[in-house]
C-alpha cells in the first residue's frame, strides 16, 4: 500500500537552514546537509528545501548545496525558490534534485508549468500554492502571504493540474505558524478535486494534527518545519502513532 509521506521542510538562506515563524523572524536551525541526513536517518520520507536567498549569487550557492545533499541523502528531495525558467530546473535536476517546486513564477507565467512538464516529465514539477481566506474565498497569495492575487485557489490548482503539475504543495497562510492544525476542509476539497498527489502544509503543531489530516482528508503527504527542526515531534514517534490509527506509513 502506498504510504502517507512525512516531509520536513527546510528553508535555506545563503546555504544555511532557517525557519520563519509566519515567514518573518528567522531562526538559524543548522547545516542543511547535516539536517537532511539526520532526517533521513529518523525516517523522513522526503525533504523539501525552499531557497529564500535573494542575492545574485543565489543560484550558484544553491546548486552547490543541492549537490552536497544529493551526495549524502538516500531519499528524494524537492527544491523550491527562485525557479523561473527551464535552465534553473535543469541545473537543479543535474545536481541531483528529484523535483522542483514553483510558486510565484507559475502564477506569473502558467505556461512554465507546461514547459517544465514537457521537458522533465510531470513527476518533476511540484506547484506550491499559498492560500488565504479573504471575504469567504480562498485566494492565492504570493510573497509569503503578503501579496494577494486575483486567482481563486481551487481554480488555480485545477489549472495547474491541467497544465501538467505532478503534485500540489498547498500551504494555508491562515494556519501557517499557528500550530493549530492543518486546514483540513480546504485540503479535503482540493484532494477530491484533482487527480495528482497533494502535500498538506501549514499549521502542524502536534501529532494529533497529522492524524487528523490523514484521517479526514485524502492528502498524500504532510509537510512541516519547526515542529521537526526543534525536536518537538520526533518522526519515529509520529509515524508509530500514525500506524496505530491504521494510516499507512513507512517504518
Amino acid at each position: 500500500m502506498l504510504s502517507k509521506r512525512i516531509i520536513p521542510c527546510l528553508d535555506v538562506k545563503d546555504g544555511r537552514t532557517v525557519k520563519g515563524v509566519n515567514f518573518v523572524d528567522l531562526k538559524d536551525a543548522g547545516d542543511p546537509v547535516e539536517l537532511a541526513w539526520q532526517y533521513a536517518q529518523q525516517g523522513a520520507d522526503e525533504l523539501v528545501f525552499l531557497d529564500i536567498t535573494a542575492t545574485h549569487e543565489r543560484r550558484k550557492t544553491m546548486i552547490e548545496m543541492v549537490k552536497s545533499v544529493a551526495r549524502q541523502l538516500n531519499i528524494p528531495f524537492t527544491i523550491g525558490g527562485g525557479i523561473t525558467e527551464i535552465a534553473d530546473a535543469e541545473a537543479l535536476l543535474n545536481a541531483g534534485a528529484d523535483k522542483i517546486s514553483i510558486n510565484s513564477a507559475a502564477v506569473k507565467n502558467p505556461q512554465l508549468i507546461a514547459d517544465l512538464a514537457k521537458v522533465f516529465g510531470r513527476q518533476f514539477v511540484v506547484v506550491a500554492v499559498d492560500t488565504k481566506l479573504v471575504n469567504g474565498k480562498n485566494m492565492v497569495h504570493l510573497n509569503g502571504g503578503r501579496l494577494i492575487t486575483e486567482l481563486e485557489t481551487e481554480q488555480w490548482i485545477k489549472q495547474a493540474e491541467d497544465l501538467g503539475a505532478g503534485e500540489i504543495l498547498l500551504t494555508s497562510m491562515d494556519h501557517d505558524g499557528t500550530k493549530q492544525g492543518f486546514d483540513c476542509n480546504l485540503l479535503q476539497t482540493i484532494s477530491q478535486m484533482i487527480n495528482i498527489p497533494v502535500i498538506a502544509s501549514g499549521g502542524a503543531g502536534s501529532i494529533e494534527h497529522f492524524t487528523e489530516v490523514f484521517t479526514t482528508t485524502g492528502v498524500d503527504a504532510a509537510l512541516a518545519a519547526s515542529v521537526f527542526h526543534f525536536g518537538e515531534i520526533p518522526i519515529p514517534v509520529l509515524k508509530n502513532e500514525l500506524k496505530k490509527h491504521n494510516i499507512p506509513v513507512r517504518l
Binding site: 509521506r5 520520507d45 510531470r122 505532478g166 503534485e167 487527480n195 498527489p197 498524500d220
Partner: peptide, 10 residues
C-alpha cells in the same frame, strides 16, 4: 488512484 504513483510502496 492518483497519477503519478509517487511515494513509498510495499
Amino acid at each position: 488512484i492518483k497519477i503519478p504513483h509517487m511515494g513509498w510502496n510495499n
